[in-house]
């Protein structure tokens, strides 16, 4: 091959080497922007009324916290220690900014000026059925927006279980503590 042939080829190769096509391939990435769709989003909203296979959500107790229009009074999921622990973790992430770590409504966001939510330890709050708490997480209430898009259904029930645990914790007496644990508790209290 003479220099006349390979020199332009080399120049061409050198030029193509500078392109970044593989860095930014012509495909959509999550939450990117698009010129094709009128709202400019890559992520497409689900068409209203869509029911995916196996997601009919016919179980109103689990998905709506209601049975025959009334709020359920007992958890539609099995109450386990793991559930409450999960609830504690999720509560601290999503709820504590306003409701506070112990549920008194003195969270950081409230201290910065958000409307004070009622303490979970008020008599009327303790009497509310669990279904009500689930409904508030799902649909929002007053100044509180819906958390349905942020917290999956099972986690919402875990949070409800933990709110109940919080309510118990602030109104517990020595009689609520198992006898075997009482000694340990008063010992820790002295420290």
């Amino acid at each position: 091959m003479s220099a006349k042939t390979w020199l332009p080829l080399l120049a061409l190769a050198a030029l193509t080497g500078c392109r970044q096509d593989m860095h930014d391939p012509p495909r959509y990435r999550a939450q990117g922007s698009s010129d094709f769709f009128s709202d400019g989003r890559v992520n497409r909203p689900v068409v209203e009324g869509t029911v995916a296979r196996g997601q009919l959500r016919a179980d109103t107790k689990f998905y709506q916290g209601r049975e025959g229009g009334e709020f359920v009074k007992t958890l539609p999921v099995e109450l386990t220690k793991d559930l409450v622990k999960r609830g504690q973790e999720r509560y601290n992430i999503y709820c504590s900014p306003c409701h506070g770590m112990v549920g008194d409504g003195e969270g950081m966001v409230v201290q910065r000026g958000f409307r004070h939510p009622p303490s979970f330890h008020l008599e009327r709050m303790r009497e509310l059925p669990v279904g009500h708490y689930y409904d508030v997480i799902t649909n929002g209430f007053g100044a509180m927006s819906s958390y349905a898009s942020r917290i999956p259904v099972k986690d919402r029930w875990a949070i409800v279980a933990y709110v109940r645990a919080l309510q118990l914790s602030q109104n517990a007496t020595m009689q609520d503590v198992p006898e075997a644990e009482r000694g340990k508790l008063s010992q820790e209290g002295r420290q």
Partner: peptide, 24 residues
């Protein structure tokens, strides 16, 4: 919210900002 279950951590929707900034 998606960081524990998905490849992308997720940039929050405006709704998340407004949870607090509707008042603050």
């Amino acid at each position: 919210t998606a960081v524990e279950t998905s490849s992308a951590a997720g940039i929050p929707p405006t709704e998340t900002c407004m949870s607090c900034h509707s008042q603050i």
